[in-house]
């Protein structure tokens, strides 16, 4: 507990994604009071907190779904004003959701390219005809790069296992992100072995130079995979420390707000 630092540390390398002193209220409910986080390229940062601590709200601010009442959002070292998910995506930030991230009736290839379809060259492309061969090739390359093997890229993703689907969702986010990938409880719906594979994937993603911000309740996994851990407590960042310095009991104590008494 000795290395605990408050707020955002110095910003020598430009942040992949970050936020400083963000506040957000909904009517009389104050979801965020003073939330800060900083994720550098190649770094995995875990965002933890008890239920109602404001994790989801904070993530949505970073995704561009909510505009903060106060504070700054930073992408690629620049302060940005996000008005929609599309804004964040255009700036190179994409999200992997716990579930409902893919269209189950579409194939892996179609899901990876959803909203980013490649058209044929020439007249056919002018009519909006897709270049399936090119999309299949690039999807295959992207999956291979992350060491994801699937039995088929053309069957509907509903026929894949939960872990396979999550892998596809991660590959999709990585493909369209140039700065950072946000992950919302990426392992919550998965069995132990599949969730380990997803953790490996996070490392692969960070190794590609992207910032990874992961919201998770799986504290042992968080401490193993993350470089740093940020804890929100009642809408405020109360801990930002290297994961190596933390233990699960420390983390739990901070999350439920016992730290002040203990300190």
């Amino acid at each position: 507990m000795t290395t605990r630092t408050r707020g955002v540390a110095s910003q020598d390398p430009p942040l992949a994604i970050g936020a400083e002193h963000v506040a957000k209220s909904f009517g009389h409910v104050t979801a965020l009071r003073d939330a800060s986080i900083a994720v550098r390229p190649g770094e995995i940062v875990a965002l933890c907190g008890d239920n109602g601590a404001g994790k989801s709200t904070f993530l949505r601010v970073l995704q561009g779904i909510y505009r903060p009442d106060a504070g700054r959002v930073i992408i690629g070292g620049q302060e940005v004003d996000l008005t929609s998910v599309r804004d964040a995506q255009a700036l190179g930030v994409d999200t992997v959701h716990q579930d409902l991230a893919l269209a189950p009736d579409l194939s892996t290839v179609d899901n990876i390219f959803l909203g980013h379809e490649i058209r044929r060259r020439g007249v056919l492309g002018g009519f909006g005809i897709l270049d399936r061969a090119e999309m299949a090739e690039r999807a295959d390359a992207a999956l291979k790069e992350l060491s994801i093997a699937l039995p088929s890229l053309t069957v509907p993703v509903r026929e894949l296992s939960g872990g396979q689907r999550q892998a596809v969702a991660i590959a999709r986010a990585v493909m369209w992100s140039s700065k950072a990938v946000l992950m919302d409880e990426p392992t919550a719906a998965l069995a132990a072995r599949q969730s380990r594979i997803v953790c490996d994937l996070m490392r692969s993603v960070a190794d590609r130079g992207l910032g990874v911000l992961v919201v998770s309740h799986d504290l042992p996994a968080v401490l193993e995979v993350a470089h740093r851990v940020v804890v929100l407590w009642r809408g405020k960042t109360v801990l930002d420390a290297p994961a190596a310095d933390l233990t699960v009991p420390d983390l739990v104590a901070t999350m439920v707000g016992h730290v002040k008494e203990a300190a």
Partner: peptide, 18 residues
């Protein structure tokens, strides 16, 4: 593709920015 994606999972379609 977008039509089928919206029918298949409206929330996912929204989330990918359609």
């Amino acid at each position: 593709r977008h039509t089928l994606a919206i029918g298949s999972a409206p929330l996912a379609a929204e989330r990918v920015g359609l």
